[in-house]
Simulated assay, not measured.
Amino acid sequence: MNLTNQYPSLNGKTVFVSGGGSGIGASLVEAFFQQGAKVAFVDIQREASQALVERLRGERPEDSAAQVSFYYCDLTDIESLRATISQAAEELGPISVLVNNAANDLRHDFREVTPEEWDRHTAVNMRHQFFAAQAVYPYMKELGGGSIINFGSMSWHAAQGGMPGYTSSKAAIEGLTRGLARDMGPDSIRVNTLVPGWVMTEKQLRLWVDDSAREDIAKGQCMKGELLPEHVAAMALFLASDDSRMCSAQNFIVDGGWI
């Protein structure tokens, strides 16, 4: 990962990342770890997550306070999520940064979606973000402040079809962010939405990025080149750090200038 900025305010802080085992999430975990943070992350991919933990622990400098811990958790099980957040806070310290990253942009035909499938889409892509924020609130209030970073998506801004459960959830997250920012602001907790564009993760390249998609990306982005997970992680570091202490209720878009 080629990130050059250092944020001293992140050193020693406890950061909770959802969906941290692969893709953007793994880059987030690595980026915060490199800042000297104590990173707890959840995922349902055990093998990939454990491999990430082993790699990062092997790369940690002797003088670093950085820690990384993986917790298996199905985010659609809210009681399990609450228990995992409590366990992470007990083991690593009160959580001062929450990164609500986990999602699944599974394609689906609007004509075939059942009510049960719709509920599954929203549970995977939106519902857990609210309950994670609710669960970390007492820790951040006790600490005198904190940062919640909800992950949105440029997909619905660009009127992309083929996944209404995903795009609807991501649109709703921006409303969730603004409401929570107002409610939590008096406790010095800032809440923002990080809105990635089409990020070239292994999953995206394997499932969705064909020649036609690359043409769409080339037309849509103002800037040439691939949007990578580390570009998104760089913004997350800023939003988590004290440098963004007066940034709240905003959308921070990292999409190569998609128009």
Rank of each mutant, 00 (worst) to 15 (best):
W156I: 07
L194E: 00
P229I: 15
E202G: 03
Y166T: 06
G12C: 05
L194Q: 01
A218N: 07
T14S: 00
T76R: 07
W198K: 01
D187V: 12
Q129K: 01
V195Y: 01
L92I: 06
V195D: 07
R107V: 09
S155R: 01
V199G: 04
A240P: 06
C247D: 05
A66L: 07
M246A: 08
V232L: 14
F16Q: 15
F32I: 04
L28F: 07
P8L: 13
V99M: 14
N11M: 13
G19Q: 01
V42Q: 08
V136N: 09
P94W: 07
V68Q: 07
P138Q: 00
G197L: 04
G185V: 09
Q87E: 06
E202I: 02
E62S: 01
E54A: 15
Q204A: 15
S49R: 08
S69A: 15
H157W: 12
Q34C: 02
L237V: 10
P115Q: 04
R82F: 05
R111T: 15
V17L: 11
L228C: 14
V68G: 06
A213E: 10
C73S: 08
G58S: 10
V17W: 14
G146F: 03
L3C: 11
G25N: 03
S212C: 04
D77C: 06
R245M: 09
D63G: 08
D77V: 04
Q50R: 15
L227P: 13
A249F: 12
F252A: 02
A37G: 01
E226Y: 05
K170Y: 14
N5A: 13
Q35K: 11
